[in-house]
Design a protein around this nucleic acid. Structure first.
Lengths: 150, 150
DNA sequence: TATAATTAATTCGAATTCGAGATAATTACG
DNA sequence: CGTAATTATCTCGAATTCGAATTAATTATA
């Protein structure tokens, strides 16, 4: 009998990875569909949401939060600037830094789509109840923090 | 007092989405680093892993499992074929279909890297114990299945 | 059976992302 | 102080992904 008597820890970890990937892809697909209706892609939305909810940010900081490379940030900020949803603003204390600021037009857009977006996510997440969500948030934080420091 | 007395469900859902995204990105970043060492990207690895563990598959089926568009599948399969890790094989019953088959060279590669990959994931997932992993798998399945059918 | 609808794979062009290298500014330190 | 190291942004080319349209084959249906 060469069969294993119980599942190895590494099989479980692999399974978790696969399920985690699948779940997020399912969820993300819906979200992207939702955002696309408003003429933005996920990265553009993520940047705009950050400025909308957290105020002006150096481009570099935005990249850290939305997990895009600096070269990608230049591209995304360019696009949003062309659409007039944000403006670049020089930093006077440190002249290497450029802030991104949401414009009035950008605010108006986000006033419209952010609540809808939030509700759409809520619908998508309706497979879990409040307690399950709370629990999962805790677990995922543990996992995320741990993986980050490897 | 206009302040909310408790967190809305939609805030919780949003939080869960953000944490889910962050956690997976942290984890995925490590995985990609691991796979890159062997000269493959995540999509190439996913395709090869499927053939390695589940045997020959029609290209179309592979795309469904690894969540890539059909045009992307053509691209990835082309690359793997050039590297001689898989071969295309015509299906005689249905001549629209092309199977992908892992080659001996592909098997040898996967014999080398799959166990390492699995162990790497296991390391990355070490922030959670077995019970926590099992629980999270169940929750994520619920979430993923639900989101899929929206 | 002939025609219509569906399905699998591909081609093509566009969008997005990255990494490496360049530039300019700031900070650390001998 | 002046030089070295670091930091923020950008440019450029390559890789990856997608969607729409195409081709060929199969299945459904009038």
């Amino acid at each position: 009998m060469t069969q294993k008597k119980f599942t190895e820890e590494s099989d479980l970890s692999l399974k978790l990875f696969v399920v985690l990937t699948r779940a997020l892809q399912s969820v993300e697909k819906q979200i992207i569909k939702d955002i696309k209706k408003h003429g933005l892609n996920l990265s553009e939305f993520a940047v705009l949401e950050l400025l909308y909810n957290k105020g002006d940010q150096p481009i570099q900081k935005i990249g850290q939060k939305v997990l895009l490379a600096s070269s990608s940030m230049t591209y995304v900020v360019d696009k949003l600037e062309k659409k007039e949803y944000l403006k670049r603003r020089a930093c006077s204390e440190d002249r290497r830094v450029t802030y991104a600021t949401i414009t009035e037009k950008g605010k108006i857009l986000m006033d419209d789509i952010f609540p809808k977006h939030k509700e759409a996510i809520n619908q998508i997440m309706a497979g879990l109840n409040s307690n399950e969500k709370e629990a999962m948030i805790e677990q995922l934080k543990k996992l995320g923090y741990y993986a980050q420091d490897l």
